[in-house]
Amino acid sequence: MSTEPQSLKVDTPTAALTSTRRRRSGGFFSAPSGWLSVGTLGLFALVAIFGPLFVDSPSGLGTDILQSPSASHWFGTDDLGQDVFAQVVWGTRISLLVGAVASLIAICIGTLLGLAAAYVKRLDPVVTTATDVMLSLPMLPLMILVTALAGPSVVTLITVIGLLSWPEVTRMIRANGLVVAAMPYIDGARVLGAGASRIISREILPAVMPLVVVNVLLTAARAVIAEAGLSFLGMGDPSAWSWGRILLNAQRSGTIATAWWQTLFPSLAILLLVLAATIAGIRYNDSRDPRTRGV
């Protein structure tokens, strides 16, 4: 949840709109950042799906306590003798699951509200105000409060993060939707008798779809960080491993100063995943922008 990717504000009316199918094929993988980021994301997905089949769930009370990385324990062990590599692998599944599903929830709500606000003039002030209010509230303390009340679990984390992450999406989709809604072909559709829901879903949505794709990635990146933050504060699912929980364990057992492997590897996992998702999002956007395409 660190920082909101305001800087990654995808400034795109033209970029998203002038895109054609023809353009999609060329751009994305033409730069190394394109396939590197997608490759990293793919790797994480493979670990999340298949990793737990090959790596035993980290169980407590081994005799190898606080071992530094070695051939038998690649990422070392924690103060209970649990293998950190196994924790990171099992944590990947939870982090990715929460990131992906929460992002989808936020995208659905955010896109719906953004498009509705862009096309239906009466709804606009309400949606804009709600978005601004949500954006100006401190989200992490709110998420902590709600998670604590609902009882920490994976489902709670997904729901809470998903339901509280839509404002950024709404803001971006609305801004782009307004540009599209002002275009002559929308008037044309209206003259031909199309209703609001048809215009939104058939005419405006396809035009902003590329931006939705970018938002899926950026929102998922934010959701992963939010999940790690909540787990680090002790709001994670107590029965599931997650990257934030590994850090919390290190913090609680007072081993952060000595057992560097216990905090370094989960930290690297978070950094790599979030970075890959962000870069893939930016790259996807750039590859559709005629100004930067091929750079």
Binding site: S2, T3, P5, S7, L8, A221, I225, A228, G229, F232, G244, L247, A250, Q251, I256, A257, W260, T263, S267, I270, L271, V274, L275, T278, I279, I282
Partner: peptide, 24 residues
Amino acid sequence: FGITSNALFIPSVAILLLVVFGSN
């Protein structure tokens, strides 16, 4: 720096600083 620091998880950064400049 803008893209990287956007991907940083604050506890990770804080722990790194604490270990290097605080304890070591």
